[in-house]
Computed example of a mutant assay.
Amino acid sequence: MQLLPGVILLTSSLALSIASRHLDREWQMWKSRHERNYITEEEEELRRNAWEATWHKVQNHNLLADQGKKNFRLEMNHFADKTSIERKSIGCLKRPSSEEKPIEVRNLQTNVNIPKDVDWRKENCVTTPKNQGICGSCWAFATVGTLESRYCIKHKQLLNMSEQQLVDCDQNDEGCCGGFPRKALEYVSEHGIMKAEDYEYVEHSQMCAYKRKETIKMKMSKFYVLPEESNMAAAVALDGPLTVGFAVTDEFQLYNGEGIFDGECAEQANHAIIIVGYGTEDDEDYWIIKNSWGTDWADGGYGKVRRNVNHCAIGEEAATADILGPDEDIEE
Results as ranks from 00 to 15, higher is better:
residue 71 N to M: 03
residue 42 E to V: 10
residue 275 I to L: 10
residue 273 I to W: 01
residue 159 L to C: 12
residue 35 E to V: 10
residue 239 D to E: 14
residue 164 Q to M: 04
residue 132 Q to C: 04
residue 325 G to I: 04
residue 197 E to C: 10
residue 18 I to D: 07
residue 144 V to Y: 03
residue 304 K to V: 06
residue 31 K to E: 15
residue 3 L to G: 04
residue 244 V to S: 02
residue 11 T to C: 13
residue 327 D to G: 00
residue 6 G to C: 07
residue 55 W to P: 00
residue 159 L to V: 14
residue 155 H to V: 07
residue 206 Q to I: 05
residue 29 M to I: 08
residue 294 G to F: 03
residue 255 Y to Q: 14
residue 52 E to N: 06
residue 268 Q to E: 15
residue 166 L to K: 01
residue 184 A to F: 10
residue 44 E to K: 07
residue 1 M to A: 14
residue 132 Q to H: 05
residue 220 M to A: 08
residue 104 E to M: 06
residue 117 D to K: 10
residue 209 A to V: 06
residue 331 E to G: 09
residue 138 C to R: 00
residue 115 P to T: 09
residue 293 W to T: 11
residue 315 G to Q: 08
residue 251 E to N: 13
residue 231 N to D: 14
residue 22 H to D: 11
residue 188 V to L: 09
residue 66 D to R: 03
residue 2 Q to N: 11
residue 32 S to H: 06
residue 115 P to L: 03
residue 59 Q to I: 13
residue 5 P to Q: 07
residue 248 V to D: 05
residue 311 H to L: 03
residue 174 E to D: 15
residue 184 A to C: 13
residue 135 C to E: 07
residue 201 Y to A: 03
residue 13 S to G: 08
residue 276 V to A: 01
residue 102 P to N: 04
residue 140 A to R: 00
residue 273 I to Q: 07
residue 14 L to M: 06
residue 251 E to T: 03
residue 275 I to W: 01
residue 153 I to D: 06
residue 54 T to L: 01
residue 230 S to L: 15
residue 204 H to A: 07
residue 268 Q to I: 12
residue 183 K to T: 11
residue 171 Q to F: 08
residue 264 E to G: 12
residue 218 M to N: 12
residue 280 T to Y: 00
residue 147 L to V: 15
residue 270 N to K: 11
residue 230 S to Y: 04
residue 88 K to A: 10
residue 285 D to L: 07
residue 29 M to R: 15
residue 28 Q to T: 08
residue 19 A to V: 14
residue 2 Q to S: 15
residue 168 D to Y: 10
residue 72 F to G: 10
residue 173 D to G: 04
residue 80 A to H: 12
residue 49 N to S: 14
residue 50 A to I: 02
residue 289 I to L: 14
residue 253 Q to M: 15
residue 197 E to I: 07
residue 106 R to K: 15
residue 137 S to G: 04
residue 173 D to R: 14
residue 139 W to Y: 01
residue 178 G to S: 09
residue 283 D to W: 03
